[in-house]
Design a binder for these strands. Structure first.
Lengths: 234, 234
DNA sequence: CGGCCACTTGAAAACCTTCAACCTATGTGG
DNA sequence: CCACATAGGTTGAAGGTTTTCAAGTGGCCG
């Protein structure tokens, strides 16, 4: 993004949330006491610098204090997309904490400062209930702010993505006959994917013609065929 | 959905996760011990029955044990859309726990059984750290499964929704001059919204012409005008 | 049987993307 | 200081995809 980059040395300091002027934005909406909460003001990033990289295996969780980060995701077909934004008062890195690997790269869009939270390793039982409860609530509030896996795909690929997502979440075994039932009307599928019901019908028809799946009403069988490669963007 | 409905009386029983055959699906992927976890097998719902209603003010959190629920959301313009699905092993109702109000209705798409979790009221400090940690991780893993607020909107309305979402998250004051800077390129906005960069440009131009906002480069001012009403669907 | 609902199909219209060109601001090197 | 390169932004026209509208089918249930 930038040719030259002055790698600024950053002061890392322990911060008591009770004394931090940004605490209202970080914890205030939750109407919970903040006594005892501490963060580690970990970094001030310049525009363009990454804080987390996709695939990284750290479980560090951050609270954004100032600035804006862009969440970028590399798709399996090589394309990239913007998966979301992180703004002041929002958590960053919980996915890495939960699954052990970050799903996307977080890159500073402006100058950014963040706090690293004192969250013990998963399963160690060290993290406090008070902090965990705040994290859970915080995270629940920002849930709606991430792009879905089918953003930017064509109608046919959206339907494929939806069906495969459903199949994996519903624990459908893909072998040997792999039949399963999708308990939704075409209209519901369309509403979820942002498509007209007729478009869902036509997409299923096309996929059926290409032998990527077979459809009889709401019963579906996925073929072993790979999802057709999508033309990579940029 | 169904004309008549036999409201079945449901056995509510305490369930110890350690003895429940579904526990692997509920907690298994997390590689954490499940000793001491208990749920209350709260309900078996028939197809069509709602478990939670949009706007309801309960903080109950459920784990889906079997079946499929559709999350339906009523938009401010009266339209409805499907916001997501809840499948076995997934949490339901955390938004209600966090914000005190459920953002959408959860309706059974098949016969459904759920467990109610023993989660104390927010702020009471009663919930155990172990349960909270599991909930946090569980929730982080299902984060990507919800439709974004702009799904199904036209390009212009997507851009409006994005800008308003950004403005509220970035704590932009809309008065008196309400100028703010969007630290993203048109290409980034388009990538996030699933639009071509040119389409973002044209949408901004159109909104500017309609006086719904003013744009100078990345500096934006929102007008006081309401977002134009969208034709309600069904 | 008649009504309702989900599903399907076809044709026209609306919308969005693509491609190509051009513009502007910024930064670099001569 | 100027020429040039680069990146972001803007505009027009063509083409493709999706939506809309309209009509018709089949299953289920009173």
């Amino acid at each position: 993004m930038q040719r030259k980059r002055t790698v600024r040395t950053v002061s890392i300091a322990e911060v008591d949330c009770a004394a931090c002027p940004s605490a209202g934005r970080c914890w205030g909406e939750l109407r919970l006491p903040i006594e005892g909460l501490r963060g580690r003001r970990a970094a001030v990033l310049e525009r363009g610098e990454p804080l987390l990289r996709q695939g990284e295996r750290t479980g560090t969780v951050y609270m954004v204090v100032n600035g804006c980060l862009i969440l970028r995701e590399s798709l399996t077909n090589g394309a990239q997309r913007v998966a979301g934004l992180s703004l002041p008062g929002e958590l960053l890195g919980i996915e890495g904490y939960a699954r052990g690997e970050h799903p996307c790269t977080a890159q500073a869009a402006t100058e950014v400062s963040v706090c690293r939270l004192n969250l013990a390793a998963p399963g160690s039982g060290q993290a406090s209930a008070a902090l965990l409860e705040r994290l859970l609530m915080k995270y629940a509030m920002q849930l709606e702010r991430v792009a879905p896996p089918w953003a930017g795909l064509s109608a046919v690929e959206r339907v494929v993505a939806f069906i495969e997502n459903y199949a994996s979440r519903a624990h459908v075994s893909r072998a040997p006959d792999g039949l399963f039932s999708l308990p939704l009307t075409r209209a519901d599928i369309g509403s979820y994917l942002g498509l007209a019901p007729e478009t869902v019908v036509r997409a299923l028809g096309q996929l059926s013609g290409e032998r990527r799946l077979s459809v009889h009403g709401r019963t579906i069988r996925l073929s072993e065929l790979q999802p057709a490669s999508v033309s990579p963007a940029a």
